[in-house]
Design a protein around this nucleic acid. Structure first.
Length: 243
DNA sequence: GCACATGCACATTTTACATCA
DNA sequence: CCTGATGTAAAATGTGCATGT
C-alpha cells in the first residue's frame, strides 16, 4: 500500500501535538493517549483519532496556540502523521519509521517551488502539502534537506575551483623559479634591492642621487624644501618608476 | 528579563534502492 | 536467476541556536 493509498482511505489519527517532532516532549515523556474512533466532518469515512485523556494539564503547542488557523493546520498535520504511522506499523510491525519515496511528480513540484523560493512560509508549506498530499512536516524536511544538498554542491564546486586555482599558481611559480635559475646561471647579479633588506633605501635609478642609511619614515618627505636631501625610493613598495 | 513557540542549520540515523560478486 | 554484502541518495530525526512574541 502506497502513501497515496493511505490518504485515500480517509482514515486519520490525531494527537494534537506540535508539528515539529523535536517539540514533542510531552508525548515522549509519557502522557497516555487514548484511541477513539470518530467520524470526520468533511469526509464520508470513519476516522480513527488518537486523543489524549487529559486535555487540561498538557500544554501542547497546538492546543495552547493563540492563532486558530495555525492550530487547525497543526492538528490536521498530526492526524495525517499519525495516520501514516498507524498504517506503517500495521504494514510491517516495526515501530513506525518508514521512509517515503517521493514520486517524480512530487519531486518535480517541490523542485519547482524550491527554485522560486528556497525557504517556506507556513502558508506556502501548507499549500504544497495539500497539493502533494504530504504532511507539512515532510515538505519542511524536504526543503531543509534540499538546502543542505545545495550547500554541499556549492562547497564541492568551490573546492574544485580552488584546486584549479592552486594548480595555476603552482604552475606559475614553477615557471618563475625556472626563469630565476636561468638568470642566475647567466651570472647576472641580482638587482640591488634584492641584495639589501627590504626596508633599506637605495639610490634612485632615475635621478641617480646617492642615498644614505635613512629610515623609511623619512623617505619621500622632501619634495618641498628638500634641495639638499637625497632622493630615495624603495623598490619593494614602489616597484615602478614612480619617483 | 524570562518563557515559550517557531524556524533553520547541521549532524546523524535510517531506509529504499542499485550494483556486484 | 537468486541472494547477501555493500554503497549511495535521500527521508527522517535530534539538537542547538536565533528570533519574535
Amino acid at each position: 500500500m502506497g502513501f497515496d493509498d493511505i490518504h485515500n482511505t480517509g482514515l486519520v489519527l490525531g494527537l494534537g501535538l506540535s508539528s515539529d517532532d523535536h517539540h514533542h516532549d510531552q508525548f515522549e515523556k509519557g502522557f497516555e493517549p487514548s484511541l477513539t474512533l470518530t467520524l470526520s466532518a468533511d469526509q464520508s469515512v470513519d476516522h480513527v483519532y488518537l486523543q489524549p485523556q487529559d486535555s487540561g494539564g498538557v500544554s501542547s503547542p497546538c492546543r495552547g496556540s493563540l492563532k486558530r488557523e495555525r492550530r487547525v493546520a497543526c492538528e490536521e498535520e498530526e492526524r495525517q502523521r499519525m495516520a501514516s504511522r498507524f498504517f506503517n506499523e500495521e504494514d510491517d510491525g516495526s515501530n513506525g519509521r518508514k521512509k517515503l519515496r517521493l514520486t517524480k511528480v512530487q519531486s518535480a513540484l517541490l523542485e519547482e517551488s524550491f527554485k522560486q523560493h528556497s525557504t517556506l512560509n507556513p502558508r506556502h508549506k501548507q499549500d504544497l502539502a495539500n497539493e502533494l498530499k504530504l504532511r507539512p512536516r515532510q515538505v519542511e524536511v524536504w526543503f531543509q534537506n534540499r538546502r543542505a544538498r545545495t550547500k554541499l554542491k556549492k562547497t564541492e564546486v568551490d573546492c574544485e575551483q580552488l584546486k584549479k586555482c592552486l594548480e595555476t599558481l603552482t604552475e606559475e611559480n614553477r615557471a618563475l623559479q625556472k626563469e630565476l635559475q636561468k638568470l642566475k646561471s647567466l651570472n647576472f647579479p641580482p638587482p640591488l634591492y634584492m641584495q639589501l633588506p627590504a626596508a633599506t633605501l637605495t639610490m634612485c635609478p632615475s635621478c641617480e642621487r646617492v642615498g644614505g642609511a635613512t629610515t623609511a619614515a623619512t623617505a619621500g618627505v622632501g619634495d618641498n624644501g628638500s634641495k639638499s636631501k637625497p632622493h630615495f625610493y624603495n623598490p619593494l613598495t614602489k616597484p615602478s618608476t614612480a619617483c
